[in-house]
Nucleic acid binder design. Structure first.
Lengths: 257, 257
DNA sequence: GCTTATAGCGCGATAATCGCGCACCCAACA
DNA sequence: TGTTGGGTGCGCGATTATCGCGCTATAAGC
């Protein structure tokens, strides 16, 4: 799951695929439309090559173009769809998230780690309004969500230490932790507790509570978390009412994994 | 937007990229884990090559493997994310969808066409429970949703006719249209009306109402739709209360596109 | 009207991708 | 236990697909 680093037989390496995916990921908020030149600069590929990749993607329908500028089409979503379609855990977990969000009156998530980030792969919200921009597949720095902290806490401490060293934390709220010490303390606390609670790290007046989800064999497959408005509730009160519900879902899930 | 068919200079065609994407899309519900052999069979690539692509994807972190079987990782979602990140329209419509869903008491969608399918790229639901499995990027046959019908109705009739000919429609409910004539009639009606209403095609006791969204220049960029429980409401009643709200959003959007 | 930066394209070189064919392994079954 | 069938990993030689240089044309900015 982690050690594919060295075993690249340059025979088994398809350069074109890697470059193409890099081109796709070069599109983002700040660069919604790319020309061959800009794409080349953003990916380190030569301009001529970048153009060929864009043309190929266009021919496949993944990007569209007005001749000089290229942009992604919704066809791209088919790729992510392949994941949702094939990953059984996110689907198995849905009914549990639903129960959690109704019972606790917040949004419930199932999340996994991907490198430095926590990715939310299933979600069930409650209330009239969807929090804007929160779509499946959303990812944020792992230290900003309880789900990320608890997943980090499940990793071997030395790996966490490696993760922490030299990392910069950009604050999202006035309460966001910005020092390595603070984040390490939160992770350590989560490790001893077996759950994680995080307050106002990403958003004001919101707290998150998360527990890890393991298979029978003890392998961590992700985390279940809930995001609650803080209001007048103390951390202790929130924990007392939320933890049992999360734990129950965790145990019920065991039989499905 | 449609005529990239013939202009493939085999010089500008990266075969490796196309094959790699085909490998990714070979994963789905029925085939969540693939071996080199099964991947090869599903894609038409040779086994040796398929293996190389899988190994490359593994090295990039997009798939994981236990040695023989391969499966997608959430990293794949970064690709779809590039789209959501870069596509401005889905984000621009969010607040409007929110208002629609609150005012009408249903789920509001923004959707676009991709070949035969309608893809839901933005959504805002109301109510305690999320309709299960409805995630962004979801796609269904265009004829099954009002959003798809209205988008088809915006295409030139001869193109629609080409789309219709020889198509098989699989019913999802006892009310689903299954004949070319029925579907053509629905599309024609949508074209003359400028909106589309569809009842119980995908789900019992649900109706959808959709209007197209155009830029000032008149180019159709997608559709706004709402899904409502039927209950005791007649089609006419639903239209009278829903259409003005949808139209209002449509016009408000004009200034943003 | 000069400068700067981009686009598209042709070409020759080469390195990357191909798929055959072999050896091996495991599971089912006679 | 031996045989069959399907799977895997790997090495190799052939070839062709991919590369990026360098050219000209064009569009934008001062």
């Amino acid at each position: 799951m982690a050690e594919e680093e060295l075993e690249l037989d340059r025979r088994d390496w398809i350069a074109g695929l890697e470059k193409g995916l890099r081109i796709i990921e070069a599109f983002n908020d700040a660069h919604p439309r790319l020309t061959p030149s800009t794409a080349a600069r953003r990916t380190g590929i030569t301009r001529t090559a970048a153009r060929r990749y864009l043309l190929t993607l266009q021919h496949l329908g993944y990007v569209d173009s007005d001749g000089t500028h290229f942009w992604l089409t919704p066809r791209i979503l088919r790729l992510g769809w392949s994941y949702f379609d094939s990953a059984k855990v996110p689907r198995a977990v849905q009914p549990f998230l639903q129960r959690i969000s109704i019972e606790l009156g917040g949004s419930a998530f199932f999340a996994v780690l991907d490198e430095d980030e926590v990715v939310f792969v299933a979600r069930n919200g409650v209330g009239r309004v969807q929090s804007l921009g929160f779509v499946l597949g959303a990812r944020i720095a792992a230290n900003l969500a309880s789900a990320g902290i608890v997943l980090l806490a499940c990793k071997p401490p030395e790996e966490v230490e490696r993760w922490l060293t030299g990392r910069k934390f950009i604050p999202y709220t006035p309460h966001s932790y910005t020092s390595v010490e603070d984040v390490r303390a939160v992770i350590d606390k989560a490790r001893t507790n077996g759950y994680s609670i995080l307050e106002q790290q990403l958003e004001q007046d919101r707290r998150g509570i998360a527990v890890p989800v393991r298979t029978r064999a003890g392998v961590v497959v992700g985390s279940i978390s809930v995001s609650l408005p803080i209001g007048n509730e103390t951390s202790q009160q929130a924990l007392t009412r939320a933890l049992p519900v999360l734990r129950e879902a965790e145990h019920a899930l065991l039989s499905l994994l």
